[in-house]
């Protein structure tokens, strides 16, 4: 079973690589933001798979932290700042 799980991880990592390439090929900021979101979810999925494959429960905590702080980063990034037009 571990071999199958690891194979799935490899496919996920491949998807990660391809979405990174798509992200690098995009010029618009928002498209890149979307790609970052997909990369984040893929990262969490890989981490969860690795947790089971490597029998490390600590990775689940890492995934939780990753998910929560990703929101903070998006919030900072998309927030309107003083200056600009106002």
């Amino acid at each position: 079973m571990n071999t199958v799980l690891l194979a799935v991880v490899v496919v996920l990592a491949l998807v990660l690589l391809i979405s990174l390439l798509i992200m690098l090929s995009r010029t618009r900021l928002t498209d890149r933001l979307l790609a970052v979101q997909l990369l984040g979810t893929l990262g969490v999925a890989i981490l969860l798979m690795l947790a089971v494959v490597m029998q490390q429960r600590a990775f689940l905590d890492t995934a939780l932290v990753l998910v929560l702080l990703a929101v903070v980063v998006t919030a900072v990034f998309t927030h309107r700042q003083r200056g600009g037009k106002s």
Partner: peptide
């Protein structure tokens, strides 16, 4: 696992909302 899933759902909803507003 289920906890991570629920949090991921909440987080991704908020994320998508923020990006859409942006």
């Amino acid at each position: 696992f289920i906890l991570v899933w629920l949090l991921a759902l909440v987080a991704s909803a908020v994320n998508a909302h923020l990006i859409a507003v942006f």
